[in-house]
């Protein structure tokens, strides 16, 4: 555990930018992501179907895999004690094999609820070639201090 950094609320300020993450999507990871999320629809693994039926240029990332990318982006930054409370996103265009995804984000709000849980409201996006493909708003709980652990919160102490 000593090698794992867990972000605490005191290290974060409103307006702070999250570090940029870039990753080039491949056909393999798109298919892997679709099948891992039990999404068998052909536009996520069959290029002919995607082109001929959906009128797009290739297979594309499915919605649950898009969510998994945002989760990874958030917890890469917070460390494993970061606990997602909410995530909301709007897909504007699709991500295809070969696209370089650029994840970016900022801390819109930092609050502490009545139960003492420290919340960060994040505004995130993934872009390809400068165009936003998905906008995302997320709410993540982070420890107040190194001894705190949001994962231990239950019932009325967990109000996402």
């Amino acid at each position: 555990m000593s090698a794992v950094h867990n972000l605490t609320a005191s290290e974060v300020q409103e307006g702070q930018q999250l570090p940029i993450l870039t990753h080039t999507a491949s056909a393999t990871t798109i298919v892997l992501g679709a099948l891992a999320s039990r999404d068998w629809r052909p536009m996520h693994h069959d290029k002919d179907f995607a082109v001929e039926r959906n009128g797009v240029r290739n297979i594309f990332i499915n919605t649950p895999n898009n969510a998994a990318w945002f989760e990874r982006y958030i917890t890469d930054w917070t460390g494993p004690k970061g606990r997602l409370g909410r995530i909301k996103f709007k897909m504007k265009t699709s991500v295809f094999p070969g696209d370089e995804m650029v994840f970016s984000g900022r801390v819109a709000r930092s609050t502490v609820d009545a139960g003492g849980c420290c919340w960060l409201d994040l505004e995130l996006a993934v872009s390809v070639a400068g165009q936003v493909t998905t906008e995302c708003q997320a709410r993540v709980a982070v420890p107040a201090d190194p001894n705190d652990n949001p994962w231990l919160r239950k019932g009325p102490r967990w109000q996402p």
Binding site: M1, V4, H23, T29, I30, L32, G33, L35, A36, S37, R38, N65, A68, W69, E71, R72, T75, D76, P80
Partner: peptide, 21 residues
């Protein structure tokens, strides 16, 4: 399915890979 999901997005969060963590 957890391992495949993490592999698809290169998610190295030790919560999913390290049972001690």
């Amino acid at each position: 399915y957890v391992y495949n999901t993490c592999a698809a997005v290169h998610n190295g969060n030790p919560l999913f890979w390290d049972s001690k963590v």
